[in-house]
């Protein structure tokens, strides 16, 4: 998909994220809006994965480590045709399979996630398997900045570099806010690029809400032969809705009717 079309997709996806969170009266609004451009570029430009090839071992793999922003993933998967979009009207409701964190019950989802610090290890296993099988499969994950404090991630950073998993790409949705406060207050990550480079990863920093930057960066994978790739994607929590941007309460906030209308107007 071309840049212009991708940019239009992001607008559509933001509208849909708000629509289904508003309908569900639940969800992770701020993080879904920060991560959506990354998911958009992955699914519509970078990864070889679709409803048609999902049962093939040759599909590229995506595991969402920051599982709480599942609304963004559901919206993209619905648009790709994995399931009817109107299913999302049941999001987070009793007896709906579309629960509040990724589940394999939904076609298109590889792995159940939710508890933080799990996704990268799974991707390491998957990427290693692809290497051993000499398969062209590539493996992607998106991490949240809060979950970078989980020790298991740093075990996985060591593992991926040790096994030279250059078919693995981890992307950090670095929106700088976690549930309690800014990362810098809760558990500072910086200097993150230096830490990851010291752990043996090839690192790039970009504006993670810039479709063009995302496209260019992800099209140049792997950044270095023999090293796993890490994208520090600087994003804005609540991106696209003025009153949500960088406001902590929208981590888990649900818009009122009035706020919802205001958001749609801004997106149009």
């Amino acid at each position: 998909m071309e840049i212009k079309a991708l940019q239009e997709k992001s607008k559509l996806y933001r509208r849909n994220i708000l629509k289904y969170i508003y309908n569900a009266k639940a969800g992770h609004t701020g993080g879904s809006l920060s991560v959506i451009d990354i998911l958009n570029v992955l699914y519509n430009r970078i990864m070889n994965v679709s409803p048609e090839n999902f049962d093939s071992n040759l599909r590229d793999r995506y595991v969402q480590s920051k599982g709480h922003c599942v609304e963004a993933l559901y919206v993209v998967l619905a648009d790709k045709g994995f399931f009817p979009e109107e299913d999302l009207l049941t999001l987070c409701k009793y007896q709906s399979p579309y629960i509040g964190h990724p589940t394999k019950k939904i076609r298109g989802i590889e792995q159940n996630t939710g508890g933080l610090g799990h996704g990268l290890s799974i991707c390491c296993g998957n990427a290693l398997m692809a290497k051993k099988d000499k398969s062209p499969v590539r493996v992607f994950t998106i991490l949240g900045d809060g979950e970078m404090a989980e020790g298991s991630n740093w075990e996985a950073f060591m593992f991926a570099a040790h096994y030279k998993l250059d078919n693995l790409c981890a992307i950090l949705d670095y929106n700088k806010l976690q549930i309690t406060a800014p990362n810098a207050e809760v558990m500072g990550l910086e200097p993150l690029d230096k830490k990851l480079e010291a752990f043996g990863w090839a690192v790039r920093q970009i504006d993670g809400n810039d479709i063009e930057a995302l496209t260019q960066t992800l099209e140049s994978l792997p950044f270095e032969q023999g090293k796993p790739s890490f994208v520090i994607a600087h994003t804005t929590k609540g991106k696209g809705i003025s009153y949500m941007e960088n406001v902590l309460k929208w981590h888990h906030g649900v818009p009122t009717a009035e706020q919802y209308e205001m958001a749609l107007t801004e997106l149009n």
Binding site: R61, Q111, G117, S121, G125, N126, G151, F159
Partner: peptide, 18 residues
Amino acid sequence: CGIAEANMIGVAAGLTIG
């Protein structure tokens, strides 16, 4: 996997995909 059991369990789960 080295002395990193949490990662080992995740890697094992990832190996089953395929």
